[in-house]
Design a protein around this nucleic acid. Structure first.
Lengths: 160, 160
DNA sequence: ATCCCTGCAAAGGGTTTGCAGACGC
DNA sequence: GCGTCTGCAAACCCTTTGCAGGGAT
């Protein structure tokens, strides 16, 4: 991660902790920096192992506690890709995007479509709500691989 | 539920089970009919209790096993509203819709926007996937209740 | 010095699994 | 009768909680 981003997210976390009158512990900043040192999605166990293999040693409980703070501070996004396992992703300066999940191999792809903003606006007006965030997931089959039988894991009824 | 729907979904399940060479057990049809006798979202525990209080007695294990079959058969939709608790909903003949979840009180509202189909089409073309289903959730605050302080559960940092 | 935060381990809650008996085929 | 499906309970996995010690304020 570049230095500029590092400073920015640390600044954001500092401001957040001060505003909420939470303590600025070294663990909190270590977790934030570990998260921003990697790309892609991760779950708590992966984050735990990544940090365990380094100079930082944090407990799972601390990770669970603080990931919530980071989500609330807007620095991390939580995903629930249909499994009972929360996945996370850094949020700062990353272009808003949504996900397509392969129903065969569970790989996750990203895409971006500005029209989701229009849907959001209409929905806000219709239901009289202010949307904080959204999650749009497409569950799909790779047509190419599927035809070639290269993504052969599960076969759904509707394929027959 | 009306008789027509009842017959249709039982027919669909029968065809599905025959196509997949699965047995047509009474539990499978009892579960299907129990689900179609109610509106709204439910989780496995609710379904279990509903059936326990009636003539049918099924185990949770059977519910977990068979809800998957019903989902695969296209008769039930699975939702994951951000919690580690799967929720379900009947799917036959119900207009496709998406959900807005109140981040204060967790109430779920439904809405319908055809533009999601256009996004889906574009995404399919761009990523070369065939979308089987999607899930779009807006997490939002009720502006009215929120201003009146009538939905006061959680306060996020970004409200400050 | 206060008391919030951490680490550890145990508990919790939803889901899955193993196995013996039941029943669809 | 064979082999799958069911019911029960235990196991499982991710997450939360309780508690004693440590560190931020």
């Amino acid at each position: 991660m570049n230095e500029e981003t590092r400073e920015a997210v640390n600044r954001i976390l500092t401001d957040y902790l001060e505003a909420k009158k939470h303590r600025k512990t070294s663990e909190r900043f270590a977790i934030l920096n570990e998260i921003y040192a990697h790309d892609g999605h991760f779950d708590i166990e992966q984050l735990y192992l990544m940090m365990k293999n380094k100079k930082y040693r944090v407990s799972r409980a601390t990770l669970y506690n603080n990931i919530e703070i980071l989500v609330d501070a807007g620095l991390v996004i939580r995903h629930q890709f249909g499994k009972n396992l929360a996945q996370f992703e850094k949020a700062y300066k990353y272009k808003q995007h949504d996900h397509l999940i392969c129903t065969d191999c569970e790989k996750v792809f990203e895409f971006c479509d500005p029209r989701i903003q229009q849907i959001q606006k209409s929905t806000e007006e219709m239901l009289k709500f202010k949307v904080i965030h959204h999650s749009l997931n497409f569950f799909a089959k790779c047509t190419e691989l599927h035809e070639k039988g290269m993504c052969p894991n599960k076969k759904n009824y509707h394929d027959i």
